[in-house]
Design a protein around this nucleic acid. Structure first.
Lengths: 331, 331
DNA sequence: CTGAAAGCGCTAACAT
DNA sequence: ATGTTAGCGCTTTCAG
């Protein structure tokens, strides 16, 4: 029996006393400094183990003047899209030695307060989409907190990384027109998320009727029910979830896709593949990873010039956009 | 012109000087203490704004003796499963006033160190599945750090929350047997994740041939290619991703589901719906939410008795398990 | 209602 | 190689 288990967290002082050394030595020994004898290190380690010592990151961070943690703010985690971005971010941040704090703003009343609290806990943060408005972004940037924006219009002096919407959407429009479709509906809100704006702009040449709807499956399904009463040739959806909702509504209405109506989405979710949905793939993982890397670089060198990048997206043609001759690939 | 913008982070001292008060008053004013005149509060607020003051959570946490942050450790974020759990966790934690730190262990070499670092940053943490072994869990629990285990066998004295696998899997087995299937293959690793173990145990009555494979789409597809050379009546997959991989392999092999072979999954991912996959739904969101709530309660009252709970899962019968008479529901 | 001062747990000079 | 000591930024008695 080596005594009772510690019921309270031990500090570096207890360890020092137990090992018969100073706190400085404990600090050094535990962080593998070269300035400690192997023998001392062993004694310190033993003492630390016996006391179940677990250093507090608070003390360390305060002393070092850095959190060794980054944050990421996103609207929500529903839908694989955000999860992928966050994962890419986490993986890269971890590799670069930072913990990551997440903040989902969806359904939160006090977003601004939450974001500011987060700002006080990290060395830098990534902000996705319109989770906070430009004023807040500017304010945070003004204190000198490194920032990187994801899928959001640039703000002066702040790094921004996005994916290509407009050009790929235009290619999608061309493809649909080539199918012979003429009457189009755009399902989504062109005045909403910037990504959606870009997609809308890209397909504008099809002169679609706009039907506003949210970006989730149920919104898509509900909106589709009305649209399908008098089906257009093709329904261009703001994202895959909406398009999948349309699938569900079409099925219920006894309409076949693409026989009675063509449908397209955006994101190339896993489900899109099984629904045979024509869509556009985004490099979501890279989006997060790049954000984490840029943030790291900016933290290292706050003075560097702001960067902007647009990652490429790719059209994925499946069967929902119309019948293809057999030689066309249908992955 | 009110002077140059602060290029460096302001501290409470600068604010105090500027407002002509003490740091104690600044602290009180900014946190809406009752002990401050409205007039003083206004002066402090103004000074803070002018300096772009953003309080450091480090100082506060150190002084208060709490992080106001919780952690969650999970293997990965691929597949909607983990994302949903994390989202449920974050939402509830935020509601209860805690920030959340995430740690994905997948592909990390120094998992133990990462988890211990995390332990030093939070008031408590949730640990999913076998991300760290029991020894580490016990060690962390020993320091008195509140813990809750998710989808993992209980450890003495630690709260645990899981979902029902065995019983629902048994029901699935019954359903498959009722279809008349006789030759079964189980695709997954019964010696792997505890969840998979439970599912295997539940379907054991079908006397399946076990074919080990990972839990992702590609593993499932690869494993299926071999299995489909001589198709059994039904392939019971450890999760939906594997099952979807089987779908892909079957399609490529020119086999129809369920005509040539029946297939089942587990998780009821969005894609499962569109693939017509028979599966079992898990309350992933609740899993995370409950973990966050329990953690909060344990932090409040470290002495309370450990709890265990098993959340229910539900069979979702679709068409992949075999042809049903029309009156059977096929959602 | 406000201020002075003592920490919170740790790191990093600076001594020795 | 090890110890002393001064902070890091904030909250919180304790006085006034």
């Amino acid at each position: 029996m080596a005594g009772m288990k510690a019921l309270t967290k031990a500090t570096i002082y207890e360890v020092a006393r137990r090992a018969g050394v100073s706190i400085a030595t404990v600090s050094r020994a535990l962080r593998d400094s070269e300035l400690v004898t192997e023998e001392t290190r062993a004694r310190v380690r033993a003492a630390a183990d016996e006391l179940h010592f677990m250093p507090s990151r608070l003390g360390r961070s305060l002393a070092e003047g850095r959190h060794a943690a980054n944050g990421i703010v996103f609207p929500d985690l529903v839908g694989p899209y955000y999860a992928e971005v966050v994962l890419g971010y986490e993986a890269t941040a971890a590799e670069l030695g930072s913990s990551v704090l997440i903040l989902a703003t969806h359904g939160r009343r006090d977003t601004v307060a939450a974001v500011q609290d987060l700002a006080g806990r990290v060395d830098g943060m990534a902000i996705m989409q319109q989770t906070v408005d430009d004023g807040v972004v500017a304010k945070i940037a003004a204190v000198g907190l490194p920032l990187v924006l994801i899928a959001r219009p640039p703000v002066a002096g702040v790094d921004t990384i996005r994916t290509r919407n407009e050009r790929t959407a235009a290619a999608l429009a061309d493809h649909l027109l080539a199918h012979g479709h003429r009457r189009f509906v755009f399902l989504g809100d062109p005045a909403g998320a910037p990504d959606v704006q870009g997609r809308y702009t890209g397909v504008r040449k099809t002169e679609p009727t706009v039907v506003r709807c949210g970006l989730d499956l149920d919104s898509g399904r509900a909106a589709a029910q009305a649209v399908l009463a008098d089906p257009p040739d093709a329904i261009i959806c703001a994202n895959d979830e909406v398009a999948l909702g349309v699938h569900l509504a079409a099925e219920q209405a006894g309409l076949s896709i693409p026989g009675d109506v063509a449908v397209t989405g955006w994101d190339d979710l896993l489900a899109a593949r099984f629904a045979g949905l024509t869509t556009a793939g985004q490099p979501m993982r890279s989006l997060g990873a790049t954000a984490a890397r840029w943030l790291h670089e900016r933290i290292q060198d706050p003075g560097r010039a702001p960067r902007r990048r647009v990652l490429d997206t790719q059209l994925v043609i499946r069967r929902s956009c119309g019948t293809h001759p057999p030689e066309v690939r249908q992955p």
